[in-house]
Simulated scan of single mutants.
Amino acid sequence: MEQMLREVEPLIPALRRYARALVRDRASADDLVQDCLERAISRWSQRREGEVRAWLFTILHNLAVDRFRRIKTRGAHVSLDETPESEFGEAAAQDQKLMYQEVMNKLATLPEDQRAVLLLVAVEDLSYAEAAKVLNVPVGTVMSRLSRARERLQREIEGPATPLGNIVTFRSVK
């Protein structure tokens, strides 16, 4: 234990400098160095003989990379006291999710040929010619299937037209 202290303690200022340069925050850098030292002490017996300095910097660097990845996926930690109240509110997303699910359900009811063309052109952003090549059909067929698919999907989403009752239609007489 005494030998470990003799080797590690003089390196702490250099580790702190490197950590501060990496994370650009004094408190986070100190936490990172503390985590590094904790890991080094708990795994002291696993180190290879030789340069302790490189081993400690490797541990510190790997911990920093892990922290950056965690922040990237979870978002940065922000104190509640430092965050304005306007940041807490968020518009409800249920309506968008329900509409998305409804569109996906209606899309599934389309005939296979229309659904394939609609997905290739509208979702995958293929040109008519590219979609025709993929489906091995003429470009005109792609255009007509796409038109029918869009019309049918729009009718499905809007629902059936309700009859207006007693409406008399007039014929034009010449």
Rank of each mutant, 00 (worst) to 15 (best):
R20K: 05
L32F: 00
V168H: 03
R171A: 10
K174S: 06
R48Q: 13
F170M: 02
L32H: 02
D95G: 11
D30Q: 12
S147A: 06
R6S: 14
D35S: 12
M104K: 14
P138E: 11
Q46K: 13
K133Q: 15
E82L: 08
L120R: 04
Q3Y: 08
E87Q: 13
E102W: 04
K97N: 08
W55L: 01
A27N: 14
D81Y: 15
E102L: 13
T141E: 08
E124I: 00
L146K: 15
L5A: 12
S42Y: 03
R152H: 07
D81V: 05
G75V: 03
L146H: 15
L5D: 10
M4V: 14
M104P: 00
E38H: 08
V137M: 09
Y100H: 03
V123R: 15
L135S: 03
A116S: 15
R70Q: 11
K174T: 09
L119A: 07
E9I: 10
L60T: 02
K133L: 11
E49K: 05
Q96P: 01
V137R: 10
P163T: 08
H77E: 12
L118M: 06
M104I: 10
P160D: 14
A19K: 08
L32K: 06
M143P: 00
L15E: 03
W44Q: 06
L146P: 02
R20L: 12
R171M: 02
E124V: 00
I59N: 02
L63E: 14
A76S: 09
A27F: 02
Q3M: 06
A122G: 05
I12Y: 07
Q96Y: 10
I71A: 12
A161M: 09
A116F: 00
S144N: 08
N62M: 03
V33P: 12
A76R: 14
A76Q: 13
V173G: 03
P84H: 04
R150I: 08
A122L: 06
L164R: 14
R115C: 03
C36S: 13
D66K: 06
E82M: 05
H61R: 15
I157K: 07
T73V: 15
G75P: 03
D81K: 11
R39V: 04
L119W: 12
K97I: 09
S172Q: 07
Q94H: 05
V33A: 08
A129H: 11
Q114P: 00
H61D: 04
E90G: 00
T141N: 08
L56H: 02
K133E: 15
F88H: 05
Q114F: 05
R39I: 02
P84D: 11
R48K: 14
A64W: 07
V65E: 09
E85V: 10
E130V: 01
W55A: 04
G165H: 03
L22F: 12
D35H: 14
L11F: 11
N166K: 13
R150D: 02
S79L: 15
A116M: 06
L37C: 10
L22K: 12
H77L: 13
E38L: 14
V33L: 07
L153W: 05
A14I: 00
D81H: 10
Q3K: 09
F57N: 04
L80Q: 08
A19P: 06
P163I: 10
D30W: 01
E124K: 14
V173P: 03
R53N: 04
R145V: 00
A21Y: 02
K174I: 09
G140L: 09
L153K: 09
R47W: 14
Q101Y: 02
E158Y: 00
